[in-house]
Design a protein around this nucleic acid. Structure first.
Lengths: 340, 340
DNA sequence: GCGAGTAGTCAAAGCGCTTTGGATTTCGTG
DNA sequence: CACGAAATCCAAAGCGCTTTGACTACTCGC
């Protein structure tokens, strides 16, 4: 069933049918109803290739997928992708994934842009002074960064959550509860988000005269394994912390096991706050002790980025708009007053 | 730079240029050289949409991405995707991901087939009597299953590794080394691969009069966490096993921590063999004690599936061909003679 | 009652590629 | 030396959609 058939069936021109379906104003409401109705009844779906050819749009969002040694992105990547796909699916957009090693990244971006294979691109896990951002900026293809870089001498569009405020608030809560020795188990320090979280936590503590010495900070790829070992080290110190902030619920699983091994209770001996990216398979409520979190759905971010990318493709969004989402602080049983 | 421009530049017709580029025989070698050369020099790339429109092929491989509560697929999925993408990238194929909940799966498959959005589809993590396979078979779209189902009353194309033989060999090795109490920590039992692995292990043991009681089997989603808890339980038994076989290196990380917690050494107290999907970020050689594995690259499987899918699209492969890859057994320091 | 708008519709021209159905030229043979 | 078969190459017809530029039929104000 194609346009031609549908229009002859309705005794209308292809023009009118096409316009009716695409919401153009110059078609009578009555006619539009007829057309939309018939299209639905006959299951008409416009051929994407034809549409793309006619409009010159590729109808695809591209992503250069690093395939090197980065375990870190995995669960986040799939979840983010789900969000992106949720939006894309309902808006005639497809996702094109281009696997690439770290070294070939630049070449890959150049290729997909030159081939006109995609209308827009997104970048994830930005680092400070991220070279990919500069490259895409030069290539002139619409893009959005999921997260933020730092130290770049130009602006660019991004979507980020307010990591600094999130950890500021979480630290402030702990301080208000009387905690004076607070540890931070963070994500990989070459990722901007980790830098921001440490900054936020430190700001809240400094404001109250609480220290955050290097001995109480760990910054590692966010695996359960790393959470465990980081926690073990930190808990072994003579001045054991009474609270731990963590960048990842996966890591927190490791922290909890370390606490259990050390015979320490939550929140009796140690309070816990973690950042929750809202994975469907790991919910803070289901932790042994319900886990207090700073929460922001990475999946929603994926949806929003798809939406903004679509807007950029359509020329509805321009300029280097940065969007920063507030983060919820959800207090649950894993935090308590510090023992005096 | 499009076909028209290129051909007028060469003083040839579009027909000839197109044929020269696509390797048709009715063009003189000398002419072909000229054309190919000019195309390269001017960086000509055919417009994918136009090509698709003309050929009627979507030029895409589809995958319905489950977005429900399945942590299990994550790292495997990304790695597999890398392989698929490696091939696809160099063959004018794109990957289209359609996220879907478990419940909507069937609807989603119907949709992408009806919309002609993809030329072929692959299915991963098949379960016994997997309904998706039946559906795609009925819809008549080319597809390949990564893995195998069981109990279906028709044949279908698949690519699987020989899980049964792999675990048969591994178990046989352990038995030959004198082990009599061998445990199996397996993946989720509703996945066919887990069933096959247990079958293989059991067959080898039974053949030597060694038992594999339920108390020494665990079958869970393959996370580090689950590996840890499964191992703890199994090691707590009075008749502690002297060897453990595991379906996943991620789980094995958990097993090793459990062993360490229990003060047991590898391979002194317990021998260890695990299946290795060859993740770039987790190599068996780098384990505390180099880990013996049954090895098969999930990434290569992705490449091969892309290749076969491409062949099916092109009509070069037909019928329900099943392909089973042998699995390497790589002996390393984590296995040793059982203590007598 | 007439000219100017305004709605609503349509025919036709692409978009860039593949492919069908000839033309034209070249060449081996009888 | 003529003739049919190869060997080459080409013009033109789609593929299914969007969009431009016009056309027709009303409606409205004066």
């Amino acid at each position: 069933m194609n346009l031609k058939q549908l229009s002859s069936m309705l005794d209308l021109s292809q023009t009118t049918v096409s316009r009716a379906l695409n919401g153009y104003p110059e078609v009578a409401e009555e006619t539009r109803r007829r057309v939309v109705d018939a299209a639905k009844r006959h299951g008409y779906r416009p051929n994407p290739s034809a549409r793309r050819l006619a409009t010159g749009k590729a109808g695809m969002i591209g992503y250069v997928m690093p395939t090197g040694a980065s375990v870190e992105i995995d669960p986040h990547f799939v979840e983010f992708l789900s969000g992106l796909g949720d939006y894309a699916r309902t808006h005639e957009l497809d996702l094109a994934l281009s696997p690439s090693t770290m070294e070939d990244e630049e070449t890959t971006y150049r290729r997909i842009v030159a081939n006109r294979q995609v209308d827009a691109v997104y970048i994830s896990s930005p680092r400070p002074k991220d070279s990919r951002i500069r490259l895409l900026n030069e290539l002139g293809i619409p893009f959005i960064v999921h997260g933020r870089s730092e130290g770049l001498d130009f602006d660019y569009p991004f979507l980020d959550i307010d990591n600094e405020a999130a950890f500021y608030e979480a630290a402030r809560l702990l301080v208000q509860l009387g905690h004076r020795r607070i540890a931070l188990i963070n994500g990989n320090p070459d990722q901007t988000f980790a830098i921001h979280r440490e900054r936020g936590a430190r700001r809240a503590m400094v404001a109250s005269g609480v220290e955050l010495p290097p001995s109480r900070i760990r910054a590692l790829p966010m695996t359960e394994e790393n959470g465990y070992s980081a926690a073990r080290e930190i808990l072994a110190a003579k001045e054991r912390p009474t609270a731990i902030m963590c960048s990842s619920m996966l890591m927190t699983l490791g922290i909890i096991r370390a606490l259990r091994d050390a015979g320490l209770s939550v929140p009796g001996d140690v309070s816990l706050v973690a950042h929750d990216d809202v994975f469907p398979f790991l919910r803070p409520e289901n932790f042994p002790v319900p886990l207090a979190t700073t929460r922001s759905s990475i999946r929603s971010a994926g949806q929003r980025i798809a939406e903004r990318l679509a807007a950029r493709i359509g020329g509805l969004e321009e300029g280097a708009r940065g969007e920063v989402w507030p983060v919820d602080l959800v207090v649950r049983g894993s935090v308590a007053q510090a023992r005096t």
